[in-house]
């Protein structure tokens, strides 16, 4: 599967967003996700099937003003 994670092209084995998060070692991390510009809550990651070309954003807490 060819997808884009945080603007980086990646080839992944994962079929769902939840397994992708696990593959990236972020299963226990405090993160939020969006797919193709739309928010996907943590509860929706299991059922979100990845498709070729999907653009995934994974964000975490950071310093802000």
């Amino acid at each position: 599967m060819n997808i884009v994670v945080n603007d980086e092209p990646k080839v992944v084995a994962a079929r769902t967003l939840a397994t992708l998060i696990g593959e990236l070692g972020l299963a226990d991390a405090r993160i939020a996700t969006a797919v193709d510009g739309a928010f996907v809550p943590a509860s929706g990651r299991e059922n979100l099937a990845l498709t070729d070309g999907m653009k995934i954003e994974i964000v975490a807490p950071r310093q802000g003003g």
Partner: peptide, 9 residues
Amino acid sequence: TVSLRRESA
């Protein structure tokens, strides 16, 4: 105040 930015694996 805090923010969100991309998290790298």
